[in-house]
Structure formats: structure tokens, C-alpha cells
Simulated assay, not measured.
Amino acid sequence: AADRAVRRPAGARTATPARPRTVIDFVERPFEGMAVERELVAMREILPLATLAARTTAEHGGCDVVLTTILPSMAGALCRADGVLLVAAQTVTNSGDASLDIAARIQAGLGLRPGEAFQVPGQPDPGPRLQDVLDPEGFGRLELHEQPTFWMTEEEASEPDNRQSLESARERLVPMKEVPGVEGAFWCRMNREFVRWVRPEPRDAVLDGLARLRASGDFSFDGSRFVGAFRALGLTIPVWELQRGAEAEELAGPMADFAPKLEAAIASDGPLTAEEKRARAGIVSRQVTLR
């Protein structure tokens, strides 16, 4: 009959309504206003192994934390056996706001016990961002690493099996170094040598500055060749191909001499000439967005 009761099979459960997917607004320049914006962009986008010591605000416990590029199994946070909290800038799951993502991992990590890891289940709910969670006076210096030794205590890293794993990881990584004395400049060796220079200025100003130098012909240092630029979290990262075999230390002087020219070109607010506009269009056409 039409009015007959419909019975559920024994043991059947009532379905739980699916949780609505949280919408996180996209933030083009998520680390804007932070003194370590360049470092965070580099860690999130171009560096394979790097760490940055930080401290949470008093409101969030006043705890020491080490921001890292990646962690084992792409974990979001890891509490080492000695209690040191590591928090990853790079994970598999991310929202449209990298600052919110990392802040959420820090908050989750603060509840970990030694030896525990936090796997990111999905994008976070709206909440505090890095600008709210981290003490602006609590940052250390960016450190680049050849091996992920920071994942372990010194005792663990000295174990034979771990030493072998660390050496294997080193062999698989693209070698990268900071250019001494040139903030935001990172040398790397792939099939050739390159330098990537994370610029802190607004992106349009950087593109204008690059265009001015390209049109003038004064666009090189130490025999380098400009090959393009990355768009990365609201900043521009120009890239130069270097002379074959060039080392990071050899760039210190030439890049230090070139830096004032680049900074002056970026700071100039005059309109671009027709030739400079053509140069800018060429640079923009070769930009690559890092995601």
C-alpha cells in the first residue's frame, strides 16, 4: 500500500549530511606586511630544503617553531623527538591563502606530542593568519640545507640507516645556495647555473624596472643572460642564466654592483617609453606562475 511504512534494514545508519565546503578567499600576496615576506615566498615556491626559526605571539602561546619547506610524507607539522615543532610551508593540500594555511598548521602542531605528525586533512577553516599568529620580532635567519637533517635530532641523524637516507635525499635535490650579501638571491644548478632573485617591491613596479633596464641594454651582470621571471604569491622572481660553471660566491660582487641599478629602475615612476613598453610586453609574455 502507498501508506505502508518504509523500514530501514537492520544495522543501517542514517546518512550524515555532507559538511559544506568552506570557501577561502584568494589572497594574491598572502605574506604582505611581514618582514620575512621574501623568505616565506622563497620557501613556499622555489627552495627545496630551508628552515626559518619563528615564535608565536603571546596570545598563541609564545612558543618557538621552525618553519620548513617540506616534511616527511608531506606532513603539515611534525613534533620531533626532542620536542622541536616543525611546520611545513609546502604540503599537498592548500587553499587560496598561503598565510592562513601555514597558520592553521602551526595551531594544529602546537597540540602534538613528541614523535607525532599532523597530516593536513583539507583546506582550513577561516581563522588567524601568519600575521596574527607569529611574533614579528621572533624570526631567525633563513637557512638552506643540503640534506633534511632538520627533520631529526642529532642522535637520530647519526644512525647509519638515517645517514644513508639523508645522503640519498641530498643526491636527488637541485643544489641551491644564497648569493652572499645579496638578499633574496638564490643560485641553483640544474642543466646550467641560474640565479633567481625574489624582489620585495610591487610586481608591476618590478616589471617596469626590468623593462627599463632591458631597453637600455644594461641588463646583465657577470656575463649573465636574463631568461624570464616567475610570478609567486604576489611577488616577481626574475631569473638569469649564468656563465657555465658559475658558483654562488662568484656572484656576490657583480650582483652587489648591479643591485643599485635594478633598485633605481624599479623605483622610477616615470612613464615607459615605447621601446620600454615593448620590452615589458616581452618580459610579461615569458612569465611563469608558480602554484
Results as ranks from 00 to 15, higher is better:
Phe31Gln: 02
Trp187Arg: 05
Thr68Ala: 11
Ala103Tyr: 02
Val182Lys: 00
Glu201Ser: 10
Ala248Ser: 10
Glu171Asn: 09
Pro136Gln: 04
Arg172Asp: 15
Val6Ile: 15
Ala88Gln: 04
Asp204Cys: 01
Ser73Asn: 15
Ser95Gln: 05
Val66Tyr: 00
Glu193Ile: 03
Cys188Asn: 14
Lys177Asp: 15
Arg129Asn: 00
Ile283Gln: 08
Asn162Gln: 15
Gly184Ala: 02
Trp197Pro: 00
Val87Cys: 07
Asp25Val: 12
Trp240His: 11
Thr273Ser: 15
Arg38Ile: 09
Gly184Trp: 06
Ile266Trp: 06
Trp197Gln: 01
Trp197Leu: 03
Arg163Leu: 12
Phe139Ile: 00
Leu85Met: 00
Thr22Ser: 11
Leu100Met: 05
Arg286Ala: 13
Pro128Glu: 03
Ala246Lys: 09
Ala42Trp: 10
Asp132Thr: 04
Arg225Gln: 13
Arg172Val: 07
Ser73Gln: 15
Arg244Trp: 11
Ala81Ser: 13
Glu37Gly: 04
Asp161Lys: 09
Val284Glu: 15
Pro200Arg: 05
Gly61Glu: 09
Gly282Tyr: 06
Pro254Thr: 01
Leu112Cys: 08
Gly76Trp: 11
Arg212Gln: 06
Arg244Glu: 14
Ala10Arg: 09
Lys177Glu: 15
Ala88Pro: 08
Ala256Leu: 05
Ala77Glu: 12
Ala53Ser: 13
Ala157Gln: 06
Val120Trp: 12
Trp151Lys: 06
Ala108Glu: 13
Glu137Pro: 02
Pro260Ser: 05
Ala157Ile: 03
Gln287Val: 12
Pro202Val: 01
Ser99His: 05
Leu85Asn: 02
Ala264Pro: 01
Ser285Tyr: 08
Gly138Gln: 01
Glu28Arg: 15
Leu235His: 07
Glu137Gly: 08
Ala77Asp: 10
Pro160Thr: 02
Leu290Asn: 09
Phe230Val: 00
Pro175Glu: 01
Gly181Cys: 05
Gly253Gln: 08
Asp82Lys: 09
Glu116His: 11
Ala77Ile: 03
Ala169Asp: 13
Gly140Ala: 03
Ala108Lys: 10
Ser73Met: 14
Pro30Ala: 08
Ser73Gly: 09
Ala104Gly: 05
Gly253Arg: 08
Asp269Cys: 07
Thr14His: 12
Val84Lys: 12
Val41Arg: 08
Glu39Ile: 04
Gly76His: 10
Glu275Thr: 11
Ala15Leu: 15
Ala104His: 13
Phe31Ser: 01
Val36Met: 10
Gly33Tyr: 09
Gly223Arg: 02
Ala54Val: 01
Val36Asp: 04
Glu146Asn: 09
Ala157Pro: 04
Leu242Asn: 02
Glu201Ala: 13
Cys63Asp: 14
Gln147Lys: 12
Phe219Cys: 02
Ala12Arg: 11
Val182Trp: 01
Asp64Ile: 02
Phe118Ala: 09
Gly270Asp: 07
Ala58Gln: 11
Val41Asn: 06
Gln164Leu: 15
Pro30Tyr: 12
Ala252Asn: 00
Thr51Phe: 05
Glu45Leu: 14
Arg196Phe: 14
Ile70Gln: 14
Ser224Asp: 01
Ala89His: 13
Arg225Pro: 01
Gly270Pro: 00
Asn191Val: 11
Thr68Ser: 09
Pro72Tyr: 09
Arg196His: 14
Asp125His: 13
Met190Pro: 00
Met176Thr: 15
Ser285Phe: 11
Arg38Gly: 14
Ala252Tyr: 06
Glu263Met: 07
Ala42Gly: 06
Gly270Leu: 09
Ala246Trp: 01
Glu143Phe: 04
Ile266Asn: 04
Gln123Asp: 10
Ala89Thr: 15
Gly270Gln: 04
